[in-house]
Write a protein that binds this DNA or RNA. Structure first.
Lengths: 258, 258
DNA sequence: CCCATAATTTAGTCGAGGCTAAATTATAGG
DNA sequence: CCTATAATTTAGCCTCGACTAAATTATGGG
């Protein structure tokens, strides 16, 4: 009957999940989590997430976004007004924050526990965030002392979805001669991160603008004692807090780069 | 022009991968890796992987397997003779072993570094193995001292695809009064693992069959000094090595369970 | 040597998530 | 107020990976 060897250690067929091979026991595919994350961030910036913005951020065609947004709206994860952008529902926000927590805990764990450089954690976390269970995330967080920010200074949502949503001014907008310290840097470009680390512009660093050349010219500043010169594009990737209104966030130590 | 806020922090569009959102930079989707892993294991048992066996192991319909097998054969990952089963090509075996390495290193890491019980690592690893980079796997392996076996005693392929392919006799087939020790247990059922741990039947444990009731009856045996009684189904999930031909594999310590 | 049965494959479908090209709709400027 | 332009949506298509139902092929027993 059986043409070839039929030894076949008959292992019990896996419990069959609803549709197909999903990321985690808890429904929701990786693309869906990516959309919700993107929309959460865009909503923070502009109040609502425009189709093109989402498309741009996820590097897909705007037409593809229209379709997905409609589906997510049908699923109750976001509210969408035709031609006016999308906003997360409470449920959508919950999912987005859970994904962001995964991402940032993973980033923190990789640097703290496995010696990753801060410019290489983003891509790894981008994949793992869809595969790791909540339990794993909690164990990672606990193993490194429940960090409150990721290696780039971005706040980590708590288990139950609370997040520090304070807005900070960017180094590009900081007034001259006002002492401040770096709270966060944008993590979306590895080479930029490497350069920032080289300049000493890492979370916690003390900074003060010395002089700003007009018309978007170079910015002279102090970074922890040393004088530096940077362009406004780079400066806008660095968020700072004036030392006057210090209500310090806890920070972590290492920022190995290259 | 822009209906809603157009702040849109123009992050550079991600490098666009060949087709769609793939697991890792290195092509190959999660389902493909799962097929190759399954075929590798079936091939070890019966010399070739039959369609139904693959289907059973992956908990999908046989018809679905036919299609995928053809595709994988076209891609050069396996050789398939109609109605006679599939065998991996060298390339396919390489991929399978890489995936198996990921899986087992992750299992080992989760128990050793994050305190997972040995009955809970399988599912987590099943998802993470498709998302973790080779670099991450190597860091994990190195962090726990380059283990050679996973928590269930299964051998871990090396970085370059070498694996200990020795076959061991199962406890169900061990002769009476022959001292042996456990080398490996099947990991596909969490509750069985918990029970085995309770009985002391973990890799490294010294065992000897005292008496075997006929017609598939219960088996009396010693497990490390203590007398135990188990059925042949359970016994066949435990692989042992007679102490005579000891050529020990390194082992790890913890087997916390419940 | 034939046939019943089990394994396998084929045919046709489906949903998720992408894409392109072709409509629509808002909005800013004249 | 009207129009050009940019944003958005629709329409139609594609691939992957799964499914069911209906052939097809091997094979062991008589």
């Amino acid at each position: 009957m059986v043409p070839i060897g039929a030894a076949a250690t008959c292992r019990p067929a896996r419990a069959r999940r609803p549709m197909m091979t999903l990321a985690r026991p808890d429904e929701l595919t990786a693309p869906v989590e990516d959309y919700l994350k993107a929309i959460y961030e865009l909503e923070r910036i502009s109040g609502a997430a425009a189709t093109t913005e989402i498309a741009h951020r996820l590097a897909i065609a705007p037409a593809s976004v229209s379709g997905m947004v409609r589906r997510l709206a049908d699923q109750g994860l976001l509210a969408h007004e035709r031609y006016r952008g999308a906003k997360l529902t409470d449920e959508g926000r919950r999912v987005a924050l859970r994904t962001i927590r995964r991402h940032r805990v993973i980033e923190a764990y990789l640097t703290r526990a496995l010696g990753y450089d801060w410019d290489r954690v983003h891509d790894e976390a981008e994949r793992l965030e869809h595969a790791a269970s909540d339990d794993l995330i909690d164990r990672m967080a606990s193993a490194i002392g429940e960090p409150t920010v990721d290696p780039h200074g971005a706040p980590i949502p708590t288990r139950d979805g609370a997040i520090d949503e304070r807005d900070f001014v960017s180094l590009a907008d900081l007034e001259s001669d006002v002492p401040a310290h770096v709270v966060q840097v944008r993590d979306d470009d590895g080479s930029r991160l490497r350069y920032l680390a080289q300049l000493g512009l890492v979370p916690g660093a003390a900074v003060a603008i010395i002089e700003r050349a007009p018309f978007g010219g170079p910015i002279r500043l102090y970074v922890g004692g040393a004088k530096r010169l940077i362009g406004p594009a780079l400066a806008s990737a660095v968020l700072v807090e004036r030392v006057a209104d210090v209500k310090p966030r806890r920070r972590r130590a290492k920022h190995r780069a290259r």
